[in-house]
Write a protein that binds this DNA or RNA. Structure first.
Length: 442
DNA sequence: CAGCAGGGGGCGA
DNA sequence: CGCCCCCTGCTGG
Protein backbone atom coordinates (compact mmCIF):
# COMPACT_ATOMS: atom_id res chain seq x y z
CA UNK A 1 0.00 0.00 0.00
CA UNK A 2 1.08 3.45 -0.59
CA UNK A 3 0.45 6.54 1.21
CA UNK A 4 0.23 9.98 -0.02
CA UNK A 5 -1.11 13.01 1.56
CA UNK A 6 -2.22 11.04 4.48
CA UNK A 7 -4.31 8.85 2.33
CA UNK A 8 -3.86 5.19 2.70
CA UNK A 9 -4.37 2.87 -0.11
CA UNK A 10 -5.51 -0.46 1.11
CA UNK A 11 -5.03 -3.25 -1.27
CA UNK A 12 -6.56 -6.63 -1.13
CA UNK A 13 -3.68 -8.80 -1.89
CA UNK A 14 -5.31 -11.77 -3.34
CA UNK A 15 -8.30 -10.07 -4.59
CA UNK A 16 -8.36 -11.69 -7.94
CA UNK A 17 -7.83 -15.14 -6.72
CA UNK A 18 -10.35 -14.64 -4.00
CA UNK A 19 -12.81 -13.30 -6.41
CA UNK A 20 -12.43 -16.21 -8.67
CA UNK A 21 -12.72 -18.55 -5.81
CA UNK A 22 -15.93 -17.01 -4.75
CA UNK A 23 -17.32 -17.24 -8.20
CA UNK A 24 -16.51 -20.88 -8.33
CA UNK A 25 -18.12 -21.42 -5.02
CA UNK A 26 -21.22 -19.61 -6.08
CA UNK A 27 -21.41 -21.72 -9.12
CA UNK A 28 -21.01 -24.83 -7.10
CA UNK A 29 -23.78 -23.84 -4.81
CA UNK A 30 -25.77 -22.61 -7.68
CA UNK A 31 -26.24 -19.42 -5.88
CA UNK A 32 -27.21 -16.35 -7.76
CA UNK A 33 -27.11 -18.24 -10.98
CA UNK A 34 -29.19 -16.56 -13.55
CA UNK A 35 -28.83 -18.61 -16.62
CA UNK A 36 -28.79 -22.30 -17.30
CA UNK A 37 -26.80 -23.87 -20.04
CA UNK A 38 -28.14 -27.09 -21.35
CA UNK A 39 -26.32 -29.52 -23.50
CA UNK A 40 -26.65 -33.18 -24.03
CA UNK A 41 -29.31 -33.38 -21.46
CA UNK A 42 -27.28 -31.82 -18.74
CA UNK A 43 -27.95 -28.51 -17.15
CA UNK A 44 -25.43 -26.10 -15.87
CA UNK A 45 -26.67 -23.26 -13.80
CA UNK A 46 -24.20 -20.48 -14.13
CA UNK A 47 -23.89 -16.73 -14.04
CA UNK A 48 -24.53 -14.38 -16.86
CA UNK A 49 -21.88 -12.16 -15.53
CA UNK A 50 -19.22 -14.77 -15.86
CA UNK A 51 -20.34 -15.93 -19.24
CA UNK A 52 -20.56 -12.42 -20.49
CA UNK A 53 -17.18 -11.64 -19.16
CA UNK A 54 -15.64 -14.57 -20.87
CA UNK A 55 -17.56 -14.53 -24.07
CA UNK A 56 -18.89 -11.86 -26.27
CA UNK A 57 -21.14 -14.39 -27.70
CA UNK A 58 -22.94 -14.76 -24.43
CA UNK A 59 -22.62 -11.15 -23.73
CA UNK A 60 -24.54 -10.37 -26.83
CA UNK A 61 -26.99 -13.04 -26.14
CA UNK A 62 -27.83 -11.79 -22.70
CA UNK A 63 -27.81 -8.29 -23.80
CA UNK A 64 -30.75 -9.03 -25.92
CA UNK A 65 -32.46 -11.40 -23.64
CA UNK A 66 -34.93 -9.86 -21.31
CA UNK A 67 -35.55 -13.15 -19.66
CA UNK A 68 -34.46 -13.28 -16.09
CA UNK A 69 -33.19 -16.77 -16.15
CA UNK A 70 -32.89 -18.04 -19.66
CA UNK A 71 -32.00 -21.56 -20.52
CA UNK A 72 -29.55 -21.73 -23.32
CA UNK A 73 -29.51 -24.94 -25.21
CA UNK A 74 -26.22 -25.71 -26.81
CA UNK A 75 -26.78 -28.24 -29.43
CA UNK A 76 -23.42 -28.91 -30.79
CA UNK A 77 -21.38 -28.83 -27.75
CA UNK A 78 -20.57 -31.85 -25.78
CA UNK A 79 -21.26 -31.68 -22.14
CA UNK A 80 -17.72 -32.63 -21.42
CA UNK A 81 -16.55 -29.67 -23.41
CA UNK A 82 -19.08 -27.46 -21.79
CA UNK A 83 -17.83 -28.43 -18.40
CA UNK A 84 -14.32 -27.88 -19.45
CA UNK A 85 -15.17 -24.47 -20.76
CA UNK A 86 -17.02 -23.58 -17.62
CA UNK A 87 -14.05 -24.66 -15.65
CA UNK A 88 -11.96 -22.46 -17.82
CA UNK A 89 -14.21 -19.50 -17.41
CA UNK A 90 -14.61 -19.83 -13.69
CA UNK A 91 -11.24 -21.06 -12.73
CA UNK A 92 -9.14 -19.86 -15.53
CA UNK A 93 -7.71 -23.22 -16.23
CA UNK A 94 -8.77 -26.36 -17.85
CA UNK A 95 -6.96 -29.48 -18.71
CA UNK A 96 -7.78 -31.36 -21.74
CA UNK A 97 -6.60 -34.45 -23.38
CA UNK A 98 -4.60 -33.77 -26.36
CA UNK A 99 -7.01 -35.66 -28.43
CA UNK A 100 -9.87 -33.58 -27.23
CA UNK A 101 -8.18 -30.32 -27.61
CA UNK A 102 -9.30 -29.62 -31.10
CA UNK A 103 -12.85 -30.27 -30.22
CA UNK A 104 -12.64 -28.13 -27.17
CA UNK A 105 -11.07 -25.31 -29.04
CA UNK A 106 -13.73 -25.53 -31.56
CA UNK A 107 -16.39 -25.35 -28.97
CA UNK A 108 -14.62 -22.40 -27.46
CA UNK A 109 -14.57 -20.69 -30.76
CA UNK A 110 -18.17 -21.30 -31.31
CA UNK A 111 -18.92 -19.71 -28.04
CA UNK A 112 -16.24 -17.16 -28.50
CA UNK A 113 -14.64 -17.91 -25.25
CA UNK A 114 -11.98 -15.37 -24.73
CA UNK A 115 -8.59 -16.74 -24.62
CA UNK A 116 -9.54 -20.11 -25.91
CA UNK A 117 -10.99 -19.12 -29.16
CA UNK A 118 -7.63 -18.94 -30.61
CA UNK A 119 -7.20 -17.91 -34.09
CA UNK A 120 -4.64 -19.96 -35.49
CA UNK A 121 -2.32 -22.47 -34.86
CA UNK A 122 -1.20 -21.69 -31.53
CA UNK A 123 -4.01 -23.18 -29.85
CA UNK A 124 -1.82 -25.50 -28.14
CA UNK A 125 0.74 -23.19 -27.04
CA UNK A 126 -1.57 -20.52 -26.29
CA UNK A 127 -3.69 -22.67 -24.33
CA UNK A 128 -1.06 -24.12 -22.30
CA UNK A 129 1.21 -21.28 -21.78
CA UNK A 130 -0.77 -18.23 -21.68
CA UNK A 131 -4.36 -18.71 -21.53
CA UNK A 132 -4.18 -21.38 -19.12
CA UNK A 133 -3.79 -18.82 -16.50
CA UNK A 134 -5.28 -15.77 -17.79
CA UNK A 135 -5.34 -14.08 -14.57
CA UNK A 136 -2.10 -15.21 -13.36
CA UNK A 137 -0.17 -12.74 -15.19
CA UNK A 138 -2.29 -9.76 -15.39
CA UNK A 139 -5.60 -8.39 -15.23
CA UNK A 140 -7.74 -10.31 -17.18
CA UNK A 141 -10.47 -8.05 -17.39
CA UNK A 142 -9.40 -7.67 -20.79
CA UNK A 143 -9.82 -10.99 -22.16
CA UNK A 144 -6.83 -13.09 -22.21
CA UNK A 145 -6.38 -13.14 -25.82
CA UNK A 146 -9.43 -12.69 -27.60
CA UNK A 147 -8.78 -14.12 -30.81
CA UNK A 148 -11.94 -14.83 -32.12
CA UNK A 149 -11.71 -13.63 -35.55
CA UNK A 150 -11.13 -17.10 -36.27
CA UNK A 151 -14.64 -17.72 -36.08
CA UNK A 152 -15.32 -15.18 -38.60
CA UNK A 153 -12.88 -16.56 -40.82
CA UNK A 154 -14.40 -19.77 -40.59
CA UNK A 155 -17.62 -18.50 -41.60
CA UNK A 156 -16.20 -16.46 -44.28
CA UNK A 157 -13.62 -18.83 -45.22
CA UNK A 158 -15.92 -20.60 -47.45
CA UNK A 159 -16.29 -17.59 -49.45
CA UNK A 160 -12.69 -17.11 -49.60
CA UNK A 161 -12.40 -20.44 -50.92
CA UNK A 162 -9.36 -20.58 -49.14
CA UNK A 163 -7.27 -23.25 -49.72
CA UNK A 164 -7.04 -24.77 -46.60
CA UNK A 165 -4.47 -26.00 -44.71
CA UNK A 166 -1.42 -27.49 -45.63
CA UNK A 167 -1.63 -31.05 -46.13
CA UNK A 168 0.83 -31.68 -43.56
CA UNK A 169 -1.41 -31.64 -40.75
CA UNK A 170 -4.07 -34.06 -40.55
CA UNK A 171 -6.98 -32.60 -38.97
CA UNK A 172 -6.81 -34.47 -35.89
CA UNK A 173 -3.74 -33.10 -34.42
CA UNK A 174 -3.83 -29.63 -33.35
CA UNK A 175 -0.33 -29.68 -32.64
CA UNK A 176 1.51 -28.62 -35.51
CA UNK A 177 1.15 -25.11 -34.88
CA UNK A 178 4.28 -23.90 -33.60
CA UNK A 179 5.63 -22.19 -36.54
CA UNK A 180 2.78 -20.12 -37.27
CA UNK A 181 2.60 -18.99 -33.81
CA UNK A 182 5.10 -16.44 -34.02
CA UNK A 183 3.92 -14.87 -37.05
CA UNK A 184 0.56 -14.91 -35.69
CA UNK A 185 1.39 -13.36 -32.49
CA UNK A 186 2.78 -10.33 -33.91
CA UNK A 187 0.72 -9.72 -36.82
CA UNK A 188 -2.66 -10.31 -35.96
CA UNK A 189 -4.21 -7.91 -38.12
CA UNK A 190 -4.47 -8.28 -41.74
CA UNK A 191 -2.15 -10.66 -43.15
CA UNK A 192 -3.77 -13.29 -41.28
CA UNK A 193 -6.32 -14.15 -43.68
CA UNK A 194 -4.40 -16.48 -45.65
CA UNK A 195 -2.91 -18.07 -42.80
CA UNK A 196 -5.98 -18.36 -40.98
CA UNK A 197 -7.56 -20.35 -43.53
CA UNK A 198 -5.13 -22.89 -42.89
CA UNK A 199 -5.63 -22.53 -39.36
CA UNK A 200 -9.22 -22.76 -39.44
CA UNK A 201 -9.11 -26.01 -40.69
CA UNK A 202 -6.84 -27.31 -38.29
CA UNK A 203 -8.69 -26.14 -35.46
CA UNK A 204 -12.02 -26.90 -36.64
CA UNK A 205 -11.70 -29.88 -38.65
CA UNK A 206 -10.22 -32.26 -36.56
CA UNK A 207 -13.28 -33.26 -35.03
CA UNK A 208 -16.09 -32.16 -37.05
CA UNK A 209 -17.20 -30.64 -40.19
CA UNK A 210 -17.32 -27.00 -40.50
CA UNK A 211 -20.94 -27.09 -40.83
CA UNK A 212 -21.43 -27.32 -37.24
CA UNK A 213 -20.25 -23.95 -36.59
CA UNK A 214 -23.45 -22.52 -37.50
CA UNK A 215 -25.30 -24.16 -34.85
CA UNK A 216 -24.30 -22.19 -31.94
CA UNK A 217 -25.14 -19.26 -33.85
CA UNK A 218 -28.40 -20.54 -34.67
CA UNK A 219 -28.89 -21.05 -31.14
CA UNK A 220 -28.19 -17.53 -30.56
CA UNK A 221 -30.46 -16.44 -33.17
CA UNK A 222 -33.15 -18.45 -31.70
CA UNK A 223 -32.79 -16.90 -28.45
CA UNK A 224 -32.41 -13.61 -29.87
CA UNK A 225 -30.14 -12.29 -32.35
CA UNK A 226 -27.32 -13.64 -34.15
CA UNK A 227 -24.10 -12.56 -32.93
CA UNK A 228 -22.75 -9.85 -34.85
CA UNK A 229 -19.82 -11.07 -36.63
CA UNK A 230 -18.17 -7.83 -36.76
CA UNK A 231 -18.01 -7.82 -33.11
CA UNK A 232 -16.18 -10.86 -33.18
CA UNK A 233 -13.46 -9.15 -34.70
CA UNK A 234 -11.56 -7.44 -32.16
CA UNK A 235 -8.16 -7.38 -32.81
CA UNK A 236 -6.29 -8.38 -30.15
CA UNK A 237 -3.30 -7.81 -28.96
CA UNK A 238 -1.88 -10.29 -27.31
CA UNK A 239 1.45 -10.45 -27.96
CA UNK A 240 3.82 -10.76 -25.34
CA UNK A 241 2.56 -8.29 -23.07
CA UNK A 242 1.52 -10.50 -20.49
CA UNK A 243 4.05 -10.94 -18.16
CA UNK A 244 4.18 -7.83 -16.42
CA UNK A 245 2.43 -9.36 -13.64
CA UNK A 246 4.65 -10.73 -11.17
CA UNK A 247 6.82 -12.15 -13.62
CA UNK A 248 5.24 -15.34 -12.90
CA UNK A 249 4.98 -16.27 -16.40
CA UNK A 250 8.54 -16.51 -16.76
CA UNK A 251 8.78 -18.85 -13.99
CA UNK A 252 6.03 -20.97 -14.98
CA UNK A 253 7.22 -23.51 -17.20
CA UNK A 254 4.28 -24.93 -18.42
CA UNK A 255 4.73 -27.79 -20.42
CA UNK A 256 1.83 -27.42 -22.10
CA UNK A 257 -0.75 -29.58 -22.86
CA UNK A 258 -1.00 -28.66 -26.26
CA UNK A 259 2.48 -28.20 -27.00
CA UNK A 260 2.56 -31.74 -27.44
CA UNK A 261 4.99 -32.48 -29.97
CA UNK A 262 6.24 -29.10 -30.36
CA UNK A 263 9.81 -29.13 -29.76
CA UNK A 264 9.75 -25.82 -28.18
CA UNK A 265 8.13 -26.99 -25.10
CA UNK A 266 10.25 -28.09 -22.30
CA UNK A 267 11.14 -31.46 -21.32
CA UNK A 268 8.38 -31.39 -18.98
CA UNK A 269 5.81 -31.55 -21.49
CA UNK A 270 6.28 -35.04 -22.21
CA UNK A 271 5.84 -36.10 -18.75
CA UNK A 272 2.96 -33.89 -18.29
CA UNK A 273 0.51 -35.54 -20.41
CA UNK A 274 0.28 -38.65 -18.56
CA UNK A 275 -1.52 -36.91 -15.86
CA UNK A 276 -3.97 -35.04 -17.68
CA UNK A 277 -6.34 -37.66 -18.15
CA UNK A 278 -9.61 -37.56 -16.75
CA UNK A 279 -10.63 -34.66 -18.56
CA UNK A 280 -13.80 -36.15 -19.15
CA UNK A 281 -15.11 -37.04 -15.87
CA UNK A 282 -17.91 -34.79 -15.58
CA UNK A 283 -18.22 -34.41 -11.97
CA UNK A 284 -14.70 -34.34 -10.88
CA UNK A 285 -13.95 -31.29 -12.67
CA UNK A 286 -16.50 -29.37 -10.93
CA UNK A 287 -16.38 -30.95 -7.60
CA UNK A 288 -12.75 -30.83 -7.42
CA UNK A 289 -12.69 -27.19 -7.89
CA UNK A 290 -14.96 -26.68 -5.05
CA UNK A 291 -13.19 -29.10 -2.99
CA UNK A 292 -10.00 -27.45 -3.66
CA UNK A 293 -11.35 -24.23 -2.58
CA UNK A 294 -12.86 -25.29 0.58
CA UNK A 295 -10.60 -24.36 3.32
CA UNK A 296 -10.80 -23.77 6.93
CA UNK A 297 -10.07 -20.23 6.70
CA UNK A 298 -11.97 -19.44 3.73
CA UNK A 299 -10.10 -18.86 0.67
CA UNK A 300 -7.06 -17.54 2.15
CA UNK A 301 -5.25 -20.71 2.14
CA UNK A 302 -6.26 -21.24 -1.29
CA UNK A 303 -4.76 -18.25 -2.65
CA UNK A 304 -1.56 -17.98 -4.13
CA UNK A 305 1.55 -16.28 -3.47
CA UNK A 306 0.06 -13.58 -1.53
CA UNK A 307 1.85 -11.11 -3.51
CA UNK A 308 0.29 -8.04 -4.61
CA UNK A 309 -1.28 -8.08 -7.82
CA UNK A 310 -1.86 -11.34 -7.68
CA UNK A 311 -0.66 -13.96 -9.12
CA UNK A 312 -2.79 -16.57 -8.21
CA UNK A 313 -1.04 -19.48 -7.53
CA UNK A 314 -2.63 -22.42 -6.30
CA UNK A 315 -5.51 -24.53 -5.75
CA UNK A 316 -4.96 -27.26 -3.48
CA UNK A 317 -6.60 -30.35 -2.60
CA UNK A 318 -7.82 -29.87 0.82
CA UNK A 319 -7.39 -32.28 3.54
CA UNK A 320 -9.07 -32.38 6.80
CA UNK A 321 -6.33 -31.37 9.00
CA UNK A 322 -6.45 -28.06 7.46
CA UNK A 323 -3.60 -28.66 5.24
CA UNK A 324 -4.11 -28.79 1.67
CA UNK A 325 -2.36 -31.48 -0.01
CA UNK A 326 -1.77 -31.79 -3.58
CA UNK A 327 -1.17 -34.93 -5.34
CA UNK A 328 -0.50 -34.07 -8.83
CA UNK A 329 -0.57 -37.47 -10.05
CA UNK A 330 -3.85 -38.41 -8.71
CA UNK A 331 -5.97 -35.54 -7.81
CA UNK A 332 -9.01 -34.68 -9.57
CA UNK A 333 -9.34 -31.73 -11.72
CA UNK A 334 -6.89 -31.15 -14.31
CA UNK A 335 -7.10 -27.58 -13.92
CA UNK A 336 -6.14 -27.67 -10.41
CA UNK A 337 -3.60 -30.14 -11.11
CA UNK A 338 -1.88 -27.86 -13.34
CA UNK A 339 -2.06 -25.18 -10.89
CA UNK A 340 -0.39 -27.32 -8.48
CA UNK A 341 2.32 -27.99 -10.75
CA UNK A 342 2.77 -24.41 -11.24
CA UNK A 343 2.96 -23.74 -7.65
CA UNK A 344 5.48 -26.32 -7.15
CA UNK A 345 7.65 -24.79 -9.69
CA UNK A 346 7.29 -21.38 -8.39
CA UNK A 347 7.90 -22.15 -4.87
CA UNK A 348 10.50 -24.72 -5.01
CA UNK A 349 11.83 -24.32 -8.35
CA UNK A 350 14.18 -27.09 -8.59
CA UNK A 351 12.60 -29.40 -6.33
CA UNK A 352 9.12 -30.10 -7.23
CA UNK A 353 9.37 -30.45 -10.79
CA UNK A 354 8.66 -33.48 -12.67
CA UNK A 355 5.16 -34.16 -13.38
CA UNK A 356 5.79 -37.69 -12.74
CA UNK A 357 6.93 -37.21 -9.28
CA UNK A 358 4.24 -37.42 -6.79
CA UNK A 359 4.67 -34.32 -4.84
CA UNK A 360 2.58 -33.37 -1.95
CA UNK A 361 2.34 -29.76 -1.31
CA UNK A 362 1.17 -28.70 2.05
CA UNK A 363 -0.62 -25.46 1.91
CA UNK A 364 -1.09 -23.27 4.91
CA UNK A 365 -4.76 -22.59 5.38
CA UNK A 366 -4.02 -19.16 6.73
CA UNK A 367 -1.63 -17.75 4.25
CA UNK A 368 0.05 -18.45 1.00
CA UNK A 369 2.83 -20.46 2.47
CA UNK A 370 3.21 -23.91 1.12
CA UNK A 371 5.82 -26.54 1.53
CA UNK A 372 6.44 -30.04 0.48
CA UNK A 373 7.16 -30.93 4.05
CA UNK A 374 4.27 -31.56 6.26
CA UNK A 375 6.41 -30.99 9.26
CA UNK A 376 7.38 -27.66 7.92
CA UNK A 377 3.80 -26.69 7.70
CA UNK A 378 3.16 -27.84 11.23
CA UNK A 379 5.80 -25.49 12.45
CA UNK A 380 4.64 -22.78 10.23
CA UNK A 381 1.10 -22.95 11.41
CA UNK A 382 2.23 -22.13 14.88
CA UNK A 383 2.92 -18.74 13.57
CA UNK A 384 -0.73 -18.28 13.01
CA UNK A 385 -2.02 -20.11 16.00
CA UNK A 386 0.44 -18.55 18.33
CA UNK A 387 1.12 -21.89 19.83
CA UNK A 388 4.35 -21.91 21.77
CA UNK A 389 4.87 -25.28 23.26
CA UNK A 390 8.30 -24.60 24.61
CA UNK A 391 8.69 -22.79 27.86
CA UNK A 392 11.85 -21.34 29.25
CA UNK A 393 12.68 -22.78 32.62
CA UNK A 394 14.21 -19.51 33.66
CA UNK A 395 11.70 -16.98 32.53
CA UNK A 396 8.23 -16.64 31.11
CA UNK A 397 9.51 -16.76 27.61
CA UNK A 398 7.92 -19.29 25.34
CA UNK A 399 8.81 -20.26 21.85
CA UNK A 400 7.27 -22.14 19.03
CA UNK A 401 10.33 -24.22 18.36
CA UNK A 402 12.63 -26.10 20.57
CA UNK A 403 15.62 -24.80 18.79
CA UNK A 404 14.58 -21.26 19.34
CA UNK A 405 14.22 -22.12 22.96
CA UNK A 406 17.64 -23.60 23.15
CA UNK A 407 19.00 -20.41 21.72
CA UNK A 408 17.09 -18.46 24.24
CA UNK A 409 18.15 -20.50 27.20
CA UNK A 410 21.73 -19.60 26.48
CA UNK A 411 20.89 -16.15 27.57
CA UNK A 412 20.33 -17.49 31.01
CA UNK A 413 23.09 -20.01 31.04
CA UNK A 414 25.56 -17.67 29.51
CA UNK A 415 26.65 -20.34 27.17
CA UNK A 416 28.31 -19.01 24.05
CA UNK A 417 29.39 -21.88 21.95
CA UNK A 418 30.35 -19.92 18.92
CA UNK A 419 33.74 -18.38 19.25
CA UNK A 420 35.61 -16.17 16.89
CA UNK A 421 38.95 -17.48 15.78
CA UNK A 422 40.30 -14.04 15.31
CA UNK A 423 39.37 -12.53 18.59
CA UNK A 424 37.99 -13.46 21.94
CA UNK A 425 34.47 -12.87 20.82
CA UNK A 426 31.97 -15.55 21.58
CA UNK A 427 28.42 -15.67 20.56
CA UNK A 428 25.38 -17.50 21.69
CA UNK A 429 24.12 -17.96 18.19
CA UNK A 430 25.91 -18.91 15.08
CA UNK A 431 24.31 -16.07 13.26
CA UNK A 432 25.81 -13.74 15.81
CA UNK A 433 29.25 -15.12 15.15
CA UNK A 434 28.86 -14.89 11.42
CA UNK A 435 27.74 -11.37 11.78
CA UNK A 436 30.66 -10.67 14.00
CA UNK A 437 33.13 -12.11 11.55
CA UNK A 438 32.09 -9.47 9.12
CA UNK A 439 33.69 -6.93 11.32
CA UNK A 440 37.03 -8.54 10.81
CA UNK A 441 36.77 -8.43 7.11
CA UNK A 442 36.35 -4.78 6.75
C1' DC B 1 27.42 -4.03 16.13
C1' DA B 2 25.69 -7.35 19.22
C1' DG B 3 21.89 -9.77 20.98
C1' DC B 4 17.79 -11.99 20.33
C1' DA B 5 13.67 -14.12 18.23
C1' DG B 6 11.68 -16.52 14.68
C1' DG B 7 10.87 -18.86 10.14
C1' DG B 8 11.98 -22.36 7.13
C1' DG B 9 14.92 -25.99 5.18
C1' DG B 10 18.18 -30.17 5.62
C1' DC B 11 18.84 -34.43 7.41
C1' DG B 12 18.59 -38.49 10.05
C1' DA B 13 16.03 -41.68 13.02
C1' DC C 1 9.10 -36.12 13.77
C1' DG C 2 12.94 -34.15 16.08
C1' DC C 3 17.09 -31.78 15.94
C1' DC C 4 19.91 -28.67 13.97
C1' DC C 5 21.29 -25.00 11.03
C1' DC C 6 20.94 -20.96 8.07
C1' DC C 7 19.16 -16.74 7.41
C1' DT C 8 16.65 -12.62 8.33
C1' DG C 9 14.55 -8.99 10.89
C1' DC C 10 14.14 -6.21 14.90
C1' DT C 11 15.95 -3.74 18.82
C1' DG C 12 18.99 -1.40 21.78
C1' DG C 13 23.44 0.43 22.97
Amino acid sequence: MMASDGMLSLSWNNHKATFCHILSTLREKERYTDVTLACEGKFYPVHKLVLSTCSEYFEKMFEHTPCKHPVVVLKDIKCADMEALLSYMYDGVVSVLQQDLARLIKAAELLQIKGLAVPDEPPLKELSKKNAYPWSSRDDRSSPHPKRRRREDMMTSTSQGSSLPPPESPPSSPQHHQESNQSWDHSKSHSQDQREDGVDQRVGDPVEPAVEFSSPKQEASHNQEPVDESLVKEEVIEGSEDNQGEGMDSRIEYGGMGGGDSNTGGEEQGSKFPHQLDTKHPQPLHEAVVEALAGPSGMQGWLGTGELGGGFSMLEGYSEDGNQEVHPASTGPHGTQQSHQMVALNKDGTRIRGREAVVTIHQCPFCSYSTVRKHGLTKHIRRHTGEKPFTCPHCPYRSSTKYAMSNHVRIHTGEKPYSCTLCPYRGAQRAALINHLLTHKS
